[in-house]
């Protein structure tokens, strides 16, 4: 009941009531739960491989300090070593012999190594950002290829979706012709047939057209989306017919009417559909999973999910790749937040 009171309370209350505390408490928990996991991913993705294996984990990417000595090929880990004098110094571990380590002073690499028991030394920790986590996948796992494939699919699909659906919506909203209503009902009726229900025959069609393992096999099937036609048609109905008639009087062809008058005026609806299309295609998973089986044609989502099976022990790469997949969406969202939320709220689409 207190919740309800919070939600229906009058606007002139000034002081914080219990209900306000509950409201902000809920919101605070919400922020932690909704944002926290992504933040944790971001922080983890910058940790080195060894830092990721620490338990319990630290929030910031802390790693063992390492030092590169001129005469050694690999960087050496640095430990805090207690010295005979009673003080301690930061020394680099050169070699381990059983329980004892041989340490050298980075300042005097030529001097005799110091011996110390490994259970008496402490690793020196510092903030280390493992940017390599980001660079390596691009070089080693053809991640750049997946990125390119995803960009291609997303951009081409969105352009084609906007073109094909707006043409159809134009005809359905601005012409009266035989079979128009039947077509509209036909399109709407397939709203209830998501791709997950026609996987097998859709795969047959794509196979028969020789489009398996081709990005076009991913792009084409979902282009003619009933939601897109519906959204654009409803919007175009509000464009006055007088505009079209006037253009025709001036000798404009139908195609010209379409691209010069209808398209610019339908911009708000096109923008909403465009944003949805980008989201749908960038995040698409099940359909590419079935159409694409060769690694060079994988999209980002497929590449990522395949790696999570193969690289189960290589979380440092996996997390960075996840971040790179997530980043474009976050950027688009920050730029277009208002459009996206009002678009969804006004159409009820996702």
């Amino acid at each position: 009941m207190s919740l309800i009171r919070a939600l229906t309370r009058t606007r002139d209350q000034r002081s914080m009531h219990l209900t306000d505390w509950l409201t902000y408490g809920f919101l605070l928990v919400g922020v932690v739960l909704m944002f926290g996991p992504a933040l944790w991913l971001a922080a983890s993705s910058l940790k080195t491989k060894s830092a990721l294996q620490e338990f319990p984990p630290s929030f910031l990417p802390m790693g063992q300090k390492e030092i590169k000595l001129a005469d050694k090929p690999d960087p050496l880990p640095v430990y805090l070593v207690p010295l005979a004098s009673g003080q301690s110094a930061e020394l680099a571990l050169q070699r381990r012999i059983g329980l004892v380590g041989l340490f050298i002073d980075p300042a005097q690499p030529g001097a005799d190594p110091v011996r110390a028991r490994m259970d008496e030394v402490k690793p020196v920790r510092e903030l280390t950002f493992a940017w390599d986590n980001y660079a390596e996948p691009l070089r080693r796992f053809r991640f750049d290829r997946f990125l390119g494939n995803s960009l291609f699919v997303t951009i081409v699909s969105t352009v084609l979706t906007l073109l094909v659906n707006s043409m159809c919506a134009f005809a359905l909203s601005k012409y009266s012709f035989r079979g128009r209503d039947a077509m509209f009902v036909f399109i709407l009726s397939t709203l209830m047939v998501p791709i997950s229900v026609i996987l097998i025959p859709a795969f047959l069609v794509v196979t028969s057209l020789g489009l398996t393992n081709s990005l076009w096999g991913v792009i084409l099937p979902p282009i003619a989306t009933p939601t897109g036609v519906f959204l654009l048609r409803q919007y175009m109905l509000t464009i006055p017919d007088e505009l079209i008639d006037a253009a025709r009087m001036d000798g404009a062809s139908e195609w010209r009417v379409y691209w010069r008058i209808i398209m610019p005026l339908a911009m708000p609806a096109l923008a909403v559909l465009g944003i949805f299309s980008v989201m749908w295609r960038w995040n698409d998973f099940l359909w590419p999973l079935i159409v694409l089986s060769r690694e060079e044609s994988f999209t980002l989502q497929l590449g990522l999910s395949t790696f999570q099976g193969e690289l189960d022990t290589q979380w440092h790469y996996l997390l960075a790749m996840t971040m790179m997949t997530l980043a474009p969406v976050v950027i688009v969202f920050t730029l277009l937040q208002r459009h996206i939320t009002t678009g969804i709220a006004s159409t009820g689409l996702k």
Binding site: P37, A38, W40, L41, M279, W282, N283, F285, Q301, L304, S305, Q308, L318, L319, T322, T325, L326, V329, V330, V332, F333, I340
Partner: peptide, 10 residues
């Protein structure tokens, strides 16, 4: 806005 794969991995 996150993709299902990203959600699952997070």
């Amino acid at each position: 806005l996150l993709s299902p794969v990203v959600v699952a991995l997070i």
